[in-house]
Design a protein around this nucleic acid. Structure first.
Length: 597
RNA sequence: GCCGGCGUAGCUCAGCUGGUAGAGCAGCUGAUUUGUAAUCAGCAAGUCGGGGGUUCGAAUCCCUUCGCCGGCUCCA
């Protein structure tokens, strides 16, 4: 431990501007957590302290309190923090022998700290003092409390001690801190922005969830279903064009199938209980892979056919604890845009790269071009197969990603039970990351099902398998799209692409003919022939995020045209034929807007 | 599942320390015939999430249950 700042440095010159300090953001936030803890200690005398780290969006501290903290209490705590900040209390670092530290914290009833100290391998531990608040801490910290200028306490939550459900639940307070006022303001604004994009609110007319029908289960309304249909049609077309074969498999299967696959042994906590069909146990499927393997196994395959790519928009059902359900993003029944690729050993790396490129290409069509890549390795307990094979599999995933020259992080133990995976997290319009795409390497299921292909020399060989999904789940992907686009879908995706609005009832007949022509041309057109002012009808249509409005009045009838209004203003007057042509082009070429000319 | 919060008309919300419900929007009816973000008027609409309790009296207090929200854990 070489950090001795508090011992060799003294308080800065009072005139020295704080903005000249260039603390790493983690240091600033970690110190903010300490200052918050000191404030909590002043208000709640008996508080026991858990941990208080800096995190990607700020910091938190976990407390064991007798009292429950309410949202309005955050103000009181903030004020107490301000006091500490105004006093410019220095952070002082000390070291203590482990035994002394254990005694020290035991005396103060800080049993969580004692637990932490016992696990530190060194003979000495470091202690930071902030006035009369003393905490076990590696540091480093800011010089004194006044260097924290821009912070805000955000949320209160329950959090298990050390993240385990078996432990006591502590009270966690989240906050954030930044070096500048502007950064803090931007962050808070971004949080507000995220709230405004909540798909459960702005996507209300697209889907619903009914406690009466079962929580975590989605009912797609006409507009939502239209959106899904567009996505699915696009998906199918792209897959056919890229060497996949579309298949369909059953939603339930004999339990025997899941015993062979290993799902029963390794995945049962997510599977719904069995049902009895003529004395035989069946299960609702949690994954599509066994079904695809059945299709593979029903024919003899030559090495010449590999890689064999089977794809399906496969709906699965998984048990998720009620507390984790969240709109479209976490549900109990969802459709995976699944594919299973059967291939020979020497094709693995090439095919992973192939899948990777295909995935990025598809995602780009939805406006996503920033990602974060994770390689998830073998789970500690629930896995199947040999360790050696796992190592090899993990190595080939890393190799494939390395070949693409893409940076990745390791998600230790995050793999599927049958193999490691590459997870692609998508960055949306306001910088949030979403887990959607996944590419999984499987050397286990083919063996368990004893599937094979005939190799060049006439011998039987076990293929490898790649499981992959690009959207992940259509539900989650759609939920993310709603938030990404703020419900202002690009033209090709919009559930309603254009709405026909007559100026008054007099123009209904003409509007009707426009509507019919658009409809016959397979444009997703809607109409509002109600006897309302044109202003009102425009307002409603815009609130429904419809990208284009076809306005029809006397002028249009006379000239056999329509005036087209975009989301912001009029974009021009077109003949009906010209308008249809433009809309059709937008659909076939996946365009965001109508071409202007 | 766990911690905390919430649950009033289709939607958004009001209803102070208990005296048995109210607004805007949407809906319906009528008038108006409208040129780029709300025409006017009238009508109808709630066993105040469900169950139990305290009380002369409960949307309001207590218990319980279901659901939702913010997190934890988990995940496509």
């Amino acid at each position: 431990m070489t950090w001795r700042r508090s011992q060799v440095r003294f308080l800065p010159h009072p005139k020295l501007e704080m903005s000249e300090k260039n603390y790493p953001i983690e240091t600033l936030r970690h110190s903010a957590a300490h200052i918050m803890a000191a404030a909590v200690r002043k208000i709640y005398k008996n508080a026991a302290f858990g941990i208080g780290p800096s995190i990607a969006t700020g910091f938190y501290y976990d407390f064991d309190l007798k009292e429950t903290i309410k949202p309005e209490d955050l103000k009181t705590i903030s004020k107490e923090m301000e006091k500490i900040i105004n006093e410019a209390i220095p952070f002082k670092r000390y070291t203590m022998k482990k035994e002394d530290a254990i005694e020290f914290f035991s005396k103060r009833n800080q049993l969580y700290k004692v637990e932490l100290i016992k696990e530190i391998p060194d003979a000495e531990v470091s202690i930071y003092e902030l006035g009369d608040f003393v905490d076990l801490c590696k540091g480093p910290h800011i010089e004194n409390s006044s260097h924290l200028k821009h912070f805000k306490l955000l949320d209160i939550a329950g959090a298990y001690w050390r993240g385990s459900e078996k432990n006591k639940m502590l009270t966690r307070i989240y906050g954030t801190a930044f070096a500048t006022k502007q950064e803090l303001a931007d962050f808070l604004k971004m949080r507000e922005e995220a709230k405004k994009r909540d798909h459960r609110i702005i996507g209300k007319h697209l889907f619903s969830i009914h406690p009466q029908a079962g929580t975590g289960l989605i009912h797609w309304h006409p507009d939502g279903a239209a959106l899904l249909n567009t996505i699915e049609t696009f998906w199918k077309k792209q897959h056919i064009l890229n060497g996949y074969k579309l298949v369909r498999t059953p939603h339930i299967a004999s339990e025997e199938l899941y015993r062979i696959s290993g799902h029963l042994q390794n995945y049962s906590e997510f599977m719904y209980s069995q049902m009895d069909i003529e004395g035989k146990p069946y299960r609702v499927r949690p994954m599509n892979c066994p079904g695809h393997i059945m299709i593979y196994a029903s024919e003899l395959h030559s090495y010449r056919e590999l890689p064999l790519r089977l794809a399906e928009l496969g709906t699965v059902y998984r048990f998720e604890k009620s507390g984790v359900l969240h709109g479209l993003l976490r549900v109990r029944g969802f459709t995976i845009d699944d594919a299973h690729i059967f291939l020979a050993e020497d094709q693995v790396i090439g095919e992973i790269i192939n899948v990777f490129d295909f995935t990025l290409k598809i995602l780009a069509s939805f406006g996503f071009d920033k990602f974060k890549i994770y390689i998830a390795t073998r789970p500690e307990k629930k896995y199947t197969g040999e360790l050696k094979a796992w190592e090899l599999a993990e190595k080939s995933l890393k190799e494939a990603v390395a070949k693409k020259g893409i940076a990745y992080e390791i998600d230790e133990g995050g793999g599927a039970f049958y193999g490691p995976k590459i997870d692609i997290k998508i960055k949306d319009a306001i910088g949030r990351l979403w887990q959607c795409s996944t590419i999984q390497f499987d050397f286990n299921l083919p063996e368990r099902f004893k599937i094979f292909y005939i190799d060049k020399d006439g011998s039987k060989r076990t293929p490898y398998m790649i499981h992959r999904a690009i959207f992940g789940s259509l539900e989650r992907f759609t939920g993310m799209l709603i938030e990404h686009y703020k419900a202002n879908f690009p033209l090709w995706l919009a559930p309603q692409q254009i709405r026909v609005l007559p100026i008054s009832e007099k123009h209904t007949n003409y509007a009707k003919s426009v509507f019919e022509k658009l409809k016959k041309s397979e444009i997703r057109v809607s109409r509002d022939f109600r006897n309302l002012s044109i202003n009102k009808k425009i307002k409603e249509a815009l609130n429904e995020h419809i990208p284009y409005l076809a306005i029809t009045g006397d002028r249009e009838i006379k000239e056999k045209t329509v005036t087209v209004r975009g989301r912001k203003q009029n974009i021009g007057v077109f003949s009906i034929e010209k308008l249809i042509e433009k809309l059709k082009l937008a659909n076939t070429q996946y365009k965001e807007t109508l071409d202007k000319d």
